[in-house]
Simulated assay, not measured.
Amino acid sequence: MSMTTAKLRDYVPQDAAALGNVALAAFEQFKDTYSDWPAMAAGLTRMGTLAEAGEIVVAEDDGRLVGGVAYIGPHKPKAGFFDPAWPIIRMLVVTPLARGQGLGRRLTEACIQRAERDGSPIIALHTTPIMDVALPMYLRMGFVRLRAAPDIHGVPYGLYTKALG
């Protein structure tokens, strides 16, 4: 699979099932780390519902979804540990077969561009040290740990922000 051919595009409702499958595949390696994997998995398969509060960008390669991310803009509904004024990045997912080719970075950059479009001085996300590829990528891109975020099914998370502009 050649990811150089992956195209980013806006999510459409018909992508819901495929996007849920991508999210599930992306998190599968962590299934033994979460205390309630069935609940976590159920949430992952509903990733498309994030389109209700924000914008989802998907990565498509040869007609198949291989990644996605949700951008939730300023003052849109989000978890209470985020400042409501901050745009946030949610659920960056790339299928295992499509990893290592810069797709996660491209999807993250798509969110940063939307935050800049929205005139925000900052963008935020939450992630966990078990994400041993995503977390170092975020740090290389200029995200800085602000504080702890609530655990998700027993896994510790941190809140990270990046100054824009």
Rank of each mutant, 00 (worst) to 15 (best):
P136A: 11
I152H: 14
M47P: 01
K76P: 06
R64K: 15
V57S: 14
P87H: 01
A79G: 11
T45N: 06
P156Y: 00
A59T: 04
A85L: 03
R90C: 15
I72P: 08
Y138C: 10
G54Q: 00
V133K: 09
R145C: 10
A25F: 04
P87N: 00
G154M: 01
S35T: 13
P121A: 12
T161D: 09
G80C: 07
D62T: 08
D151H: 13
P87A: 02
L97R: 10
V12N: 03
Q29R: 15
I72T: 14
A85W: 04
T4K: 09
V22C: 00
V12P: 00
I72H: 02
L97T: 14
N21S: 12
G80R: 06
A59N: 01
L107A: 07
R64N: 14
D83F: 03
V57W: 12
T33Y: 05
R99W: 02
A39H: 13
E60K: 08
I122V: 15
P156D: 03
Y160C: 01
P121Q: 03
G54P: 05
R64T: 11
V144K: 14
M91K: 12
I72S: 09
P74T: 09
I112W: 10
M40L: 12
G158T: 11
A41M: 04
L19P: 01
W86Q: 14
L139T: 13
W37S: 00
D118L: 13
F27I: 01
A70D: 06
T33M: 13
G100A: 06
L24W: 09
M3A: 09
P96L: 06
M3E: 12
R105A: 15
W86C: 12
I122N: 15
A110T: 00
Y11S: 00
A70R: 06
I130L: 12
Y138W: 08
Y160Q: 01
M3G: 11
R117A: 15
D83P: 13
A124W: 02
K76T: 12
V93M: 13
D118H: 10
V66G: 06
L164T: 05
M137C: 13
V144Q: 14
L8P: 00
Q101S: 15
Y157R: 07
R140K: 15
G80K: 08
F27G: 01
A149Q: 02
K78V: 04
K31F: 01
G142L: 06
A42C: 07
V69E: 02
M91N: 14
L164M: 06
L125K: 03
V22Q: 01
F81T: 09
F81K: 08
R106W: 05
S120N: 07
D32M: 06
V66P: 00
L65K: 09
T45D: 01
E116L: 15
D118P: 05
G104V: 05
R106C: 08
A53K: 09
